[in-house]
């Protein structure tokens, strides 16, 4: 299989890899880089578990070719705790009991982070819209929506006091 060099930013660090031509970003993250925080739920772009942030927007890594990430900035869940402290979304998911089996949680948090990065004051409908591509089978979504709204509030508060 042809190998393609890809240079991109992964969780804030420059990354240089040779990937199989035609392989997905999901495969590169998990099988090549050992970043198992990105989950594979369907391999067909319908469950959202593999959501990562590419250049600020939420993308399905199971449908994204690794080689197309050249020159781009990719954030996975592992990138949220780079400095050791939890992101307010992670804190809110914990305190709000917004995770059960946990398999959808990485994609949910990244879809939410992408929203909050773009829109610090989302309405409930904005949150619903942002996670509508992410399937959760355990929680009934309600605690997830509430956790994201709580995190948004905390982030706004942190910005004000900063």
């Amino acid at each position: 299989m042809t190998k393609v060099p890809v240079q991109f930013t992964l969780n804030g660090r420059e990354q240089n890899e040779f990937v199989d031509s035609g392989s997905t970003l999901l495969a590169a993250l998990r099988d090549k880089l050992g970043l198992y925080g990105t989950k594979a739920g369907c391999h067909q772009g319908t469950c959202g578990a593999c959501t990562v942030i590419i250049d600020g927007s939420p993308q399905l890594s199971c449908l994204t070719l690794a080689e197309r990430c050249a020159g781009k900035s990719v954030t996975t869940l592992e990138g949220l705790t780079g400095n050791g402290a939890l992101h307010p979304l992670q804190q809110a998911f914990m305190e709000g009991f917004a995770a059960q089996c946990g398999f959808c949680t990485p994609g949910m948090i990244l879809a939410a982070k992408s929203l909050l990065d773009r829109n610090p004051s989302p309405s409930r409908d904005d949150v619903i819209d942002a996670i509508s591509g992410n399937i959760c089978r355990c929680t009934g979504y309600d605690p997830i929506i509430n956790a994201i709204l709580t995190a948004a509030e905390q982030l706004r508060g942190a910005r004000k006091s900063a």
Binding site: L35, Y36, G37, T38, K39, A40, T76, L77, E78, L80, T81, L86, L89, Q90, F93, M94, F97, A99, G102, F103, T105, P106, I109
Partner: peptide, 13 residues
């Protein structure tokens, strides 16, 4: 839950 929100929970795969 800390494992869930940080992506460190280890599933079989």
């Amino acid at each position: 839950v800390l494992g869930h929100v940080t992506g460190k929970t280890q599933y079989y795969a």
